[in-house]
Write a protein that binds this DNA or RNA. Structure first.
Length: 258
DNA sequence: AAGCTGTCCAACCGCTCTGCA
DNA sequence: CTGCAGAGCGGTTGGACAGCT
């Protein structure tokens, strides 16, 4: 089809981001907000394609990101959501505060998948593996017409697999938590997780469906890294002394814990 | 110490979706 | 309705690192 490349390949840098590039991107977005990504590299003085900038921001630089391994509760949530949504990582991520689709996808492929296989559960169908082997023969003639699109409809996803056929595994307890699930599926919209970027998270942290949300200070821990290249340089004058002191305190606290 | 192997994760690629003229 | 541009998504890759022999 002769599709145009997303960006001019000439002069566009690829590979790992440098601190300097991060600084430019953070500075630009904090100053101007997220606008048209295609224009960002030019305006921010970056030799990157807009796509790359968006990815870097959403997966790594966003201040509302939680870093580190997924907790047990988050893992369980991912398993359940995956059983319902399949590989719709962005939809899954939307229900996990501070997590990105990329992060969840990576975690799924490296940890959860293996865990499920070890538990004797097919990570794709969430069916028990031995049962799956039997069912496979029967399904071969039926799978036509059961495309991935049908997953969009929750009623036809392997949702039921979670609460019925995988009854004895560790998902069961989670899947039977009706209050949790009902709150997850009350409406089709993700539960205000994206809105956390609007800095409405109360100080001191909170819990969301049993998963602890990072406090704004925690979310801002990443900003401490910015001190490496001078916090004022990247347009963070908006952070007052109190907030900076809080972050310093938290940092010290983290060090003592670690 | 050196080489090999496996794991992890940031980043890229290409396709699809969405909004607009 | 159609075509285009931009944004978003999911699959995949490749380099860094850790653990083992």
């Amino acid at each position: 089809m002769g599709r145009q490349p997303c960006c001019d390949k000439l002069g566009v840098k690829k590979g790992p981001w440098t601190a300097e590039e991060d600084k430019k991107l953070i500075n630009f977005i904090l100053t101007n907000g997220q606008c048209c990504w295609r224009a960002v590299p030019k305006l921010a003085g970056l030799r990157r394609c807009g796509k790359s900038c968006r990815l870097r921001w959403t997966n790594y630089l966003r201040p509302d990101l939680k870093r580190g391994l997924l907790s047990e509760a988050e893992e369980q949530l991912v398993m359940d959501l995956h059983s319902r949504l399949g590989n719709r990582w962005s939809k899954i991520a939307a229900r996990l505060p501070g997590r990105t689709d990329n992060e969840i996808k990576n975690h799924w492929n490296t940890h959860i998948k293996k865990k499920l296989i070890k538990m004797g559960i097919d990570p794709v169908t969430h069916e028990p593996l031995n049962k799956e082997a039997k069912a496979a023969e029967n399904h071969i003639s039926e799978t036509d017409g059961v495309g991935a699109d049908s997953l969009e409809d929750n009623s036809s996803t392997p949702t039921e697999n979670c609460s019925s056929s995988v009854g004895s595994n560790s998902l069961d307890k989670f899947c039977n938590d009706e209050s949790l699930l009902s709150s997850l599926w009350m409406n089709d919209e993700p539960p205000l997780i994206d809105a956390s970027w609007d800095i409405n998270i109360p100080a001191g942290g909170e819990t969301y469906n049993g998963i602890s949300l990072p406090s704004w200070e925690e979310n801002c821990a990443w900003l401490l890294d910015c001190q490496d290249f001078g916090i004022n340089d990247i347009g963070l004058d908006c952070l007052n002394d109190i907030e900076l002191n809080t972050m310093n305190t938290l940092e010290m606290g983290d060090k003592t814990v670690a």
